[in-house]
Design a binder for these strands. Structure first.
Length: 485
RNA sequence: GGCGAAUUGGUCAAGCGGCUAAGACGCCGCCCUCUCACGGCGGAAACAAGGGUUCGAUUCCCUUAUUCGUCACCA
């Protein structure tokens, strides 16, 4: 049987990282087995539909590299792939009625008020357990109510006795008492199927072999099992995933700031790193590698090796991983990503690519760039004390001496390059018999006005150009002169 | 509250009856070095608790604790 997995999101907003991982695992299961990855839009809740949310799903999947083989935009004969469109054909209602025929489901005409009288409060939560009131309606009574146009729902008929067992590829067999299961609604009063029902029907009709979903569905899975059994259909392989939490071991919320793929991109992370990181939240390859491309993930992925316990989404480690991706990235790919951030801080005419290069091994996210390079734009106000560095063995006096002696030599250069600058300074250092740091520390300080900079004096001066560099050095000499007197 | 699941260093995570209990992030130290970073080397740091089973339990069973999930005309 061909492996067919599906990602079935509800278009309600940005793509949560938990959903991203679900989609990724679905994708990996399919691709690892040479199967198909299907995208299905589950928009059965008209009230929660968010305009544009479907576009976000398409865009996110594309950016993450999770290319679907079938979906609303690629019908391979199992369409439509949007549930609201499927509703129109009366398909869900047809299957619901089949269940009614079999006695596995029944019409319910209970009013909201009656339902509310059935609720009880336990541990601060209000819970409802339907009492099968309408199950006792005779066929004639049902027909009469239907004919009278009374609003109705169709509920699943679950016996009060016995147990139901399903098998999860990850958690093994899970058995639940039928009495714990509510007679859930299959068809809502607006004629739409509930998620739980539409899911079963569509997975079967689309011949889905593997269903990956969050842990929170485990308790309702026995209801699915009963549905499959009532229809006489074969159940797919279930793969339930442990929760992803924040540092406080709480569910990731929008407030965490990093709950969605989009948020992370905005925070300067690259798609590949996010995918890589998310893949490792709950799974690890046999050889324990940590940096894996999408193709390597496909090759290595084994859904039977998924962790059962929740994982904390560790931003610190994501930052590290993102840094690894940035460092290893091809220049052609890196520049378009980095340049906009360089230009946020530096508008003057200079080699922006050289600045991007400087910063490449020093950043963890693209957003780190601007703060690191602002001194290229304008020399910041700095303290003369900065020239004094005990490890470099520099102080105001010898710094002033260095700058004064180097200035005319630098002025004599036609232009500054990564060749002539080191050559000139090396010669000077040798003649004076001093250590590199004695000359380079004051130079770098004068030219940057900063304690720490990406790159050294040569790189900075080359980018700044002769004129600006000399102006900054003269400024430094001035500052040192007035402090020495 | 019922039901279900989980529990290896701060975090991710190997382990699947016998190991000095991997590795990674982070942290600390050293080296490299014109600063910062990169890179290299080293260090501190863990099997929730109690009972069994067994010659032997991190690994199997039970109990307890803790955490999480779930009990909708939401997915």
């Amino acid at each position: 049987m061909k492996v067919r997995s599906r990602y079935a999101p509800s278009p309600t907003g940005k793509m949560h990282v938990g959903n991203l991982r679900t989609a990724l695992y679905e994708f990996l299961i399919a691709k690892h087995a040479g199967g198909d990855f299907i995208l299905r839009i589950e928009d059965t809740d008209q009230g929660r539909f968010v305009e544009g949310a479907t576009d976000i799903i398409y865009r996110t999947l594309a950016e993450a590299g999770l290319v679907h083989d079938e979906g609303p935009d690629k019908d391979k004969g199992f369409g439509p792939y949007v549930q609201s469109e499927r509703v129109k054909s009366g398909l869900y209602m047809k299957y619901a009625k089949q269940l009614v025929e079999k006695g596995a489901a029944y019409y319910c005409f209970c009013s909201k008020e009656r339902l509310e009288s059935l609720t009880s409060t336990v541990g601060g939560e209000t819970i409802t357990h339907y009492d099968k009131h309408c199950l006792s309606l005779s066929k004639e009574e049902v027909e009469a109510k239907l004919a009278a146009g009374e609003p109705f729902v169709i509920r699943q008929n679950i016996p009060r006795e016995g147990t139901t067992t399903f098998t999860d590829a990850n958690y093994g067999d899970i058995t639940i008492e039928n009495s714990e299961l509510d007679d859930q609604i299959l068809i809502k009063s607006d004629g739409f199927p509930t998620y739980n029902f539409a899911n079963v029907i569509d997975d079967h009709l689309m011949e889905i072999s593997h269903v990956v979903r969050g842990n929170e569905y485990i308790s309702s899975t026995p209801k699915y099992t009963r549905l499959y059994q009532a229809f006489g259909w074969q159940e797919p392989t279930y793969v339930h995933l442990p929760l992803i939490t924040n540092e406080e071991h709480q569910k990731l919320s929008k407030r965490s700031g990093h709950s969605s793929f989009e948020d992370l991109i905005e925070q300067g992370f690259v798609a590949e790193a996010i995918v890589n990181f998310v893949a490792l939240l709950g799974w690890s390859p046999a050889d324990n590698r940590e940096i894996l491309s999408l193709q390597e993930l496909i090759d290595e992925f084994d859904y039977t090796k998924i962790s059962k316990s929740p994982a904390v989404f560790d931003m610190v480690k994501l930052r590290w991983m993102n840094g690894e991706y940035l460092k290893a990235m091809d220049p052609e790919k890196y520049y378009p990503l980095a340049l906009p951030y360089v230009e946020k801080a530096v508008t003057r005419d200079c080699d922006k690519k050289a600045i991007a290069d400087l910063v490449k091994t020093r950043i963890e996210t693209l957003c780190d760039i601007p703060d690191m390079i602002d001194f290229f734009e304008a020399l910041p106000d700095y303290d003369v004390e900065m020239y004094t560095h005990k490890k470099m063995k520099t102080n105001s006096e010898n710094s002033l001496e260095t700058l004064r002696e180097l200035l005319p030599k630098l002025e004599a250069l036609d232009s500054f390059t990564m060749e002539n600058l080191p050559e000139l300074v090396a010669k000077y250092v040798e003649e004076k018999g001093i250590k590199n740091g004695i000359a380079l520390w004051p130079l770098r300080t004068a030219v940057s006005g900063k304690q720490m900079t990406p790159g050294g004096a040569y790189e900075i001066m080359t980018i700044l150009g002769k004129e600006e560099s000399l102006a900054r050095i003269r400024k430094g000499i001035q500052m040192l002169e007035s402090s020495c007197n």
